[in-house]
Design a protein around this nucleic acid. Sequence first.
DNA 1: CTCCTTGCAAACCGTTTGCATGCCC
DNA 2: GGGCATGCAAACGGTTTGCAAGGAG
Lengths: 152, 152
Amino acid sequence: MSAEKQKDLELYLDELKTIVKKRGLKYSTQREQILKVLFNAKNHLTPEEIYQEVKKENTSIGLATVYRTLSFLESEDIVSSISFGSEGKKYELNRGEHHDHMICIKCGKIIEFFNEELERLQEEIAKKENFKLITHQMNMYGICEECQKKDQ
Amino acid sequence: MSAEKQKDLELYLDELKTIVKKRGLKYSTQREQILKVLFNAKNHLTPEEIYQEVKKENTSIGLATVYRTLSFLESEDIVSSISFGSEGKKYELNRGEHHDHMICIKCGKIIEFFNEELERLQEEIAKKENFKLITHQMNMYGICEECQKKDQ
DNA sequence: CTCCTTGCAAACCGTTTGCATGCCC
DNA sequence: GGGCATGCAAACGGTTTGCAAGGAG
């Protein structure tokens, strides 16, 4: 792990410590481990996947703890979730800028993207309806480049 | 019910008959009743709500039938579903143009909107990633005009 | 020492499935 | 009459909850 990445992780852990203290709650190994897993994740993870990952170094963790921690982290805006139809939710660590997702319906791959104009357009649409926009979720479903090639 | 509305419903029922025939399936009272409920709905309905509604004139319908019918109608592109976080899915009849949704997190109201530029922008974003766009779902969460007034 | 957090198991809830029966064509 | 559709109940999968035990402050 690079020194740079290490430092980022520290920042997240510090943020967690601060928030936990501010809320009069406690800093636990489990919360730290779950946050670490999310930090190291290359893609979006389901609660079950996070559970399995944490289990590698803490065999006694319970699935319920993962769910409880994810709800907490999401309410504190440390992580975000995207939900796919009935296939449940996936979580990711909030790193800076908001972004949206393209989801490949063949292989399940998730491509993240950020588009300035899209953000602006939403504000504009909301304003038209006097709707106070808080957050949004834009999911584009289709077939990714690789899967298109495979099909041919 | 106005004559005009009546005529529209007939068109939907005819469409259902045609599709059902084309697939070698059967036209049943239940399918017709579920489609009618969706046609008459003022807002998006959950499977449970549809079930309760149909039950008013057909007490023996089963929830499973509603689910099976909704899957079928959705696969045939007669209805669409939107999914909200963990709160499940809601269904609506496809009437012409595609549209997106603003969802009030206070009262649950759903405001539909269609924005030409948004559609175009998506195509553009997908093209950049060589992603073959099939469908999308854009949900904007916030507070509707009425709920904003209430809060003051 | 206190209260929050945890692990476990049971409960929950929306959705799906197997099966015998019913109904459309 | 044959095969799809239905109703019912059971199964399912993800998520939540009650509770007693454990751990942080």
